Amino acid sequence: MRRLMIAGALCAVVAGAPRAQAPAGVVIGVGNFIHVVADLERALTFYRDALGMEAQGNARAGVATRPFLDTWEILRLYDSVGAQYRVGATLVPGSPMRAEFIEVTAPDRRAIRPRIQDPGAATLVLTVRDLEATLARVQAAGGAVVTTGARPVALADAQRRGRAVLVSDPDGFYVQLVQRDAALPASAPAGNVVDVGFAATVADLDRTLALFRDTLGFDPQLDPSENDPARLALYGLPEARYRRVTALVPGTTFPVEFTELGNVPRRRFQSRPRDPGSSILRLRVGDLDQALGALDEAGVRIVSADGEPVEVVGANATQHFAITVTPDNLFVQVVQQVPAAAPAR
């Protein structure tokens, strides 16, 4: 077994000095982090009431205002023609990333629940104002604490210090809650959640780097820190070893991280976009055909119906979508938006 470098201390998403924007390339921005859930009402209630995220649109009034839909294009996107779906979202003001939830009624759907060390496990990273109060609400709402001892751990790196705890929501998605020691800047959102990021567990970090760096234009940075017992406790894996990189999504200041965990048992999952427990990261691209061609060369395939992208025509723009899956069972939805032509005079 090859040696795994122990990754560093505090996750790069903790709010601090403003981040410089990463240059755009094939990828020009970030969209939502999509959770495929078994019960939309339960998911919205957990993220709104337990975590303190701001509900978007009709979700403020409750899920009863979110009817099931059968839009053909969306069902093709999720390879679920013949089913129905409903969608809701929560957000952090000022962030391009929303936590979007979709419930698909496909009769053959099957739930997955990867462990944090299993490739494809995805984590929403939330910086909060009050970690203890948030953790108490999470536990009262049925969330599970993954971190050793079921309590926050103190983490630090060269720039920032804070405390963090890893929990899972009722569908088994992971949420890392972070509270930094330093005072929040005056520009921080007024609510409990003040910053957001995305993390994923991968089977092979080198392969993931080749995909996101060489194909999609990310600029990942390897965390050089080693053997941090607090971070191992955060994952609830005191005997594990890992390598971790962080990067900004091109064209944004939005942070992502990828971690390869070793020295612990791991399971491989193969799910579908309609299966509860599947996670989908939406990336905005300038040219969908170019992006899909590059992804195909990297071994990333389209899993939307018939292996084809989907076109959704709106009043102000036409959007071209495709859901793809990496070898780690991480779903990446790529979307190109084409503004509607101005009316002729």
Rank of each mutant, 00 (worst) to 15 (best):
A158L: 13
D289T: 09
D181C: 06
A141W: 10
Q336L: 06
V92R: 11
L288W: 11
L237T: 00
N32H: 15
T246M: 10
T259F: 10
A317M: 11
N32Q: 13
L234E: 06
G286P: 03
R60Y: 02
T90M: 15
G94S: 05
L166V: 03
V26N: 08
D296M: 05
T208K: 13
A233V: 10
Q333A: 15
N58T: 06
P23E: 02
P309E: 08
L288T: 05
R207I: 07
D195S: 03
G277M: 04
A150Y: 01
G57F: 15
A122E: 10
V313T: 15
G217D: 03
V196Y: 15
D157T: 07
V245I: 04
Y85E: 12
D70F: 07
P339Y: 07
L330H: 04
T123Q: 07
R151P: 00
V87Q: 10
V264N: 00
R244E: 08
P189M: 04
S95W: 06
L261A: 12
T246L: 14
L4W: 13
R161S: 14
A38Y: 02
C11W: 10
S95V: 05
Y242F: 11
G162N: 04
P185S: 15
L232Q: 15
G82W: 02
I112W: 12
G143T: 03
P96R: 04
F33Y: 06
Y235N: 03
P250R: 13
P265S: 01
V325K: 02
D70R: 04
I102Y: 09
A38F: 02
Q270P: 03
R98N: 13
A7T: 14
V13W: 10
R284H: 14
V194D: 11
R42I: 00
A38G: 10
A24F: 00
V256G: 09
D206W: 12
A83V: 01
D223M: 11
A99S: 05
L131E: 12
A150T: 01
R48C: 02
R86H: 07
V138T: 11
P273H: 14
R98K: 05
P93Y: 05
D130E: 06
A341L: 13
D39T: 03
V145T: 08
R98Q: 09
Y78M: 04
V92Y: 06
D118V: 13
V125W: 13
V202C: 04
R86S: 01
P119I: 15
A15T: 04
A7W: 05
